[in-house]
Design a protein around this nucleic acid. Structure first.
Length: 242
DNA sequence: TCATTAAATTGTT
DNA sequence: AACAATTTAATGA
């Protein structure tokens, strides 16, 4: 298992295309971008590796360059609850980074991923200097608030088809996860882990969604055809239990 | 570059 | 949980 320290050992500076893929980098002035480029590090994570753990002090603000991460939390009863997946283009931890607190959740790689990290000190420096960056963070916080509210609703959903649909809609959020685009790279097994269903049931739900025309199932990924339909999916009396 | 093989993923029971 | 079918990735000539 990859600990925080070994993650640091494997880190390296970002290449030009990797920098380009960072959504907020283009909002920066040249001298701001230069400082950020010097500080940014990237590391490879294998499935199961921890990017950060609950309770550890915040050292980095993280972003997914490639792959898929899982955000989860350990409850007082010792149970693990998964909040959401973090697809490419997603940056997280700004809330705790701003307050310099400790991480409130665990982040694990769901698949082989590349994760970028910006040191908290640089994060704060950007907050103090860049209007564009502040705008990005504010937008990010606002959008995530909507995500968490939606996540609570998803939890109450009993119908697996709807759970899958709403979770997918969240992952396809273009504001929070601009790196996703038309096709979300995720296997049905990975999606099953995120949603908390069996792979069979996820497969069934995806088939139903595909039949509705809101997505298309592809090998190793899903293509969104109608995001709005996905968000507001309410299944009529078509399934077997009805 | 192509053919072969291994690995990963999907669809189904 | 197990299986076969399909797709992709890896290998080597």
């Amino acid at each position: 298992m990859l600990t925080d320290s070994s993650l640091h050992q494997r880190r390296r500076p970002l290449t030009e295309p990797e920098l380009d893929a960072i959504p907020w980098i283009h909002l920066l002035a040249p001298h701001e971008r230069e400082r950020v480029t010097d500080d940014l590090k990237i590391a490879d994570a294998s499935p199961g590796d921890y990017i950060c753990r609950m309770g550890r002090p915040v050292t980095y603000w993280f972003g997914v360059v490639d792959g898929m991460l899982k955000m989860s939390s350990d409850t007082a009863e010792g149970r693990t609850m998964t909040f959401t997946g973090v697809p490419p283009g997603g940056w997280f931890g700004e809330g705790t980074a701003m307050k310099r607190e400790s991480y409130r959740y665990n982040i694990q790689a769901l698949r082989k991923s590349r994760v970028a990290g910006l040191h908290v000190d640089t994060f704060h420096w950007l907050l103090d200097h860049s209007i564009g960056f502040n705008r990005f963070v504010m937008n990010q916080l606002n959008e995530r608030l909507g995500q968490f509210i939606a996540a609570r609703e998803i939890d109450r959903m009993t119908n697996p088809d709807i759970r899958v649909a709403r979770s997918l809609a969240a992952l396809f959020n273009p504001v929070l996860y601009p790196g996703v685009g038309e096709v979300l790279r995720i296997t049905q097994q990975e999606l099953a882990y995120l949603v908390g269903l069996s792979r069979q049931r996820v497969n069934e739900a995806l088939t139903t969604l595909a039949a509705q025309g809101s997505i298309r199932v592809e090998y190793g990924g899903l293509r969104v055809l109608d995001l709005h339909a996905l968000r507001s999916t309410v299944f009529p009396a078509t399934r077997s239990e009805l």
